[in-house]
Write a protein that binds this DNA or RNA. Structure first.
Length: 694
RNA sequence: GGGCCGUUAGCUCAGCUGGUUAGAGCGCAUGCUUGAUAAGCAUGAGGUCCCUGGUUCGAUCCCAGGAUGGCCCA
């Protein structure tokens, strides 16, 4: 060996294991191809071990040990060692995963007791031994250990090794070990025959990847994640050994023990299961399912036994698209699937693979991944800590609409937090939205279809508000289209607060002071109605109950053609107009500048605006009356200076308004023009006179 | 140990291909209003854009490393 004469009769490869019970299943010893391995003369025997781990492995023997020769692991491939418990060989093989931090650098390989070992064994032609039965006891193949429970056998095996002189050292270490997630008992690995879907036959993996092309992913990186899950997924094991479930409609030839999954048998099973249920498989004789003249293609045998394995439920969920979609009025593929991120590996993948195999395309158009709901500290909800909140309880407590608004207020794609404080916050937003709806509703009570002012005939201010709202409605609908519910929420809040802060205040005068049928008042009402209708349609997907309740409160004649709020269509502006946003922002800025003065409140003031000629043109078109209302002052004086830069905001000065406060409309004006109404302005006097006459 | 993702005001979140003083809503403080009134309007305070280094005239944004939280694997 290694060109040296071995000084002792005994020479051994040192391996370590934390599972002595797997030694009866040993078929090989894995070395790292690139690591250096050396022979050490330790006095009474010669030991082979990785040089890097020699000191740790040999312990106190290391100092006296004599290194005889050294070579890379790859040069040792194919050598044979002797199993320390059985009269059989164990082959030296190579594996990249061999660890040079712990152990001996030589890894005991039992292909029947672990996935890595199985793959190494398959790659090197090692025998797969599984001398353990389904109850965790050794079978006859395990020789002297037959009948022993495997964990009980550990001590016996260690004792046997010690007795036959092959045990170098035994010690206690603490390490992690896989456990059952449900019952917490340690689990073991046993190589058994199973049914698989071969991902690389018939180009299934490639076809599944190709089927992703037509799918939209939210978030976008989900596509990459999904792609990796398909590319890296091993052969798909779909069988389970359970006593209850959907049978795999396969048969075993009693002559040659070959398992057969025949399409004709499967179709017979499908027909029978559809009529009497899948349990029939366990009751019927197998002949029930065999087509006439059915014979084993391998040996020609005609006697068969039914397969006992069932289909894994994760495979069954992977074919729900066939069970649910494509009939009873439901389309195939569906528009979207929404699940947590764990389903890239689960349902998103399994559905895609089965659909690619059967239909050649994805069973969905859009994959939407949502985050997890945590408590307010960002920790997973826990019943034991008392931080768990059931969705149904939350709905009872806060109301379904507030709960739904919360869901829209957070970025659901990421993990989200939920708790009383978060709900209280979104509850206040809900109240704001509700109050704005109430304001609109409260001001259209006497509007009728005949008195509605068409869009083209609206005063500029009202037209601007209408355009502004329409643009937001578009943004909201666009957001819904791509499942961006949070984006819709942001636009909804921006719209309702924007309308409230500017337009609602600006139209109070026409609404409250003008005669009921005055065209200016009808124009304002028309916009309020149009905005309300668009707004309710826009919020209905989230605030479903609130939107419907509000729609039912709209005068019946105005609701014609839309019995429910869900009969309304989303309002979409034809093309975005940057000028609308700009003008809206300009008015809000002017209004804020006026309000910022602390001396004159509301209509006590007269605003003096210093503007450029261009700004003047933009403002002038609103008309003095509407601009005055938008800025909440009694008078406006505009000073145009061509010296002003057009990109500098108008400067605003507020001085005392001229005249006295009209008792009716609160604006400062010349009063007493009508001697019989000395405390009100001329405009109000005219309205009052008409009221009298009517 | 590997792959992927997140980290911006007290809270929930914007911030397009790197470019003046980083924004909104809610909360908080202050003022106004009392004809949306268990409402409405305005103003203000509040941020080392997780950290370190790099690229660049310039980085919340790009690159590398790290911290921290999460999902899926091993």
């Amino acid at each position: 060996m290694l060109g040296v004469e071995l000084p002792h009769e005994k020479a051994a490869v040192v391996v370590w294991t934390t599972t002595p019970w797997t030694l009866p299943g040993n078929s090989g010893v894995a070395l790292h191809p690139d690591a250096a391995y050396a022979l050490y003369d330790v006095g009474d025997e010669t030991l082979l071990v990785a040089e890097a781990l020699a000191q740790a492995t040999l312990g106190e023997q290391f100092a006296a040990a004599k290194k005889m020769a050294s070579t890379a692991g790859r040069n040792l491939r194919g050598l044979r060692a002797r199993n320390p418990l059985f009269e059989r060989d164990s082959e030296i093989v190579l594996a990249q995963y061999v660890d040079l931090e712990t152990g001996t650098g030589a890894v005991h390989t039992a292909p029947g007791h672990g996935a890595e070992d199985f793959e190494t064994g398959t790659a090197n032609g090692l025998q797969v031994r599984n001398p353990v039965d389904a109850t965790g006891h050794f079978i006859a193949e395990a020789g002297p250990y037959a009948g022993m429970q495997i964990f009980d056998a550990n001590a016996t095996i260690v004792a046997d090794l010690r007795a036959n002189g092959t045990l170098l050292r035994a010690e206690e270490i603490v390490h992690s070990y896989p456990h059952c997630w449900r019952c917490h008992n340690p689990v073991i690995f046993r190589a058994t025959s199973q049914w698989f879907i071969a991902m690389d036959r018939n180009d299934l993996r490639a076809r599944a990847l190709a089927a992703m092309d037509g799918v939209t992913y939210t978030p976008q990186w989900g596509r990459e994640r999904q792609r990796q899950m398909i590319e890296r997924h091993p052969e798909w094991c779909i069988s389970r050994q359970r006593t209850w479930g959907t049978p795999i409609p396969a048969v075993t030839c009693l002559g040659c023990k070959e398992s057969l999954l025949d399409p004709a048998v499967a179709r017979n099973a499908a027909r029978r299961f559809a009529q009497v249920g899948a349990d029939a498989w366990w009751r019927d004789t197998i002949d029930t399912y065999l087509p006439a003249g059915f014979a084993c293609p391998s040996c020609g045998g005609t006697a068969f036994a039914a397969e006992r394995d069932i289909v894994d439920i994760w495979f069954e969920s992977g074919v729900t698209h066939l069970a649910v979609l494509g009939h009873d009025g439901l389309p195939w593929p569906c528009d979207a699937v929404v699940e947590g991120g764990d389903q890239y590996r689960g349902w998103f993948r399994s559905s895609l693979v089965t659909a690619a195999a059967i239909r050649g395309e994805a069973p969905y158009r859009h994959v939407v991944k949502n985050g997890w709901v945590n408590d307010e500290e960002g920790r997973p909800m826990s019943k034991s800590r008392g931080t768990g909140i059931d969705a149904r309880d939350a709905m009872d407590q806060y109301g379904a609409d507030v709960l739904r608004l919360w869901a829209a207020s957070v970025e659901f794609v990421d993990d989200v937090r939920f708790g009383p404080n978060v709900v209280a916050q979104v509850g206040r937003v809900y109240r704001n939205i509700r109050n704005r709806i109430r304001f609109m509703l409260g001001n259209i009570g006497d509007l009728s279809p005949e008195s509605i002012v068409e869009r083209a005939a609206l005063p500029p201010l009202d037209a601007l508000a209408d355009d502004y709202a329409a643009q937001k409605f578009s943004a909201i609908a666009d957001a819904y289209d791509v499942a961006d519910v949070h984006g819709a929420y942001l636009a909804i809040v921006e719209l309702e607060s924007g309308l409230s802060a500017l337009y609602f205040d600006a139209v109070k005068d026409p609404l409250y002071s003008r005669a009921a049928g005055d065209p200016r008042r009808r124009a304002a009402q028309s916009v309020l109605f149009r905005v309300l209708r668009g707004f309710l349609a826009a919020v209905a997907p989230v605030l479903s109950f609130t939107a419907e309740e509000a729609w039912q409160a709209v005068p019946e004649s105005l609701r014609a053609g839309a019995e429910s709020v869900f009969d309304l269509r989303f309002v979409r502006a034809i093309g975005g107009d940057a000028a609308v946003e700009r003008e809206w922002a300009t008015l809000r800025a002017l209004r804020a500048a006026v309000a910022a003065n602390t001396e004159y409140r509301d209509f006590e003031g007269k605003a003096i605006l210093d503007v450029s000629p261009e700004q003047h043109r933009n403002l002038e078109r609103f008309g003095d009356e509407d601009l005055r209302e938008a800025l909440v002052v009694s008078q406006i004086e505009t000073r145009v200076s061509s010296a002003r830069a057009k990109d500098v905001s108008p400067s605003v000065t507020v001085v005392a308004a001229e005249g006295d406060k009209c008792a009716r409309c609160w604006k400062y004006r010349r009063l007493g023009g009508d001697a019989s109404h000395p405390s009100i302005c001329d405009a109000c006097a005219a309205v009052v006179r008409d009221l009298r006459e009517a």
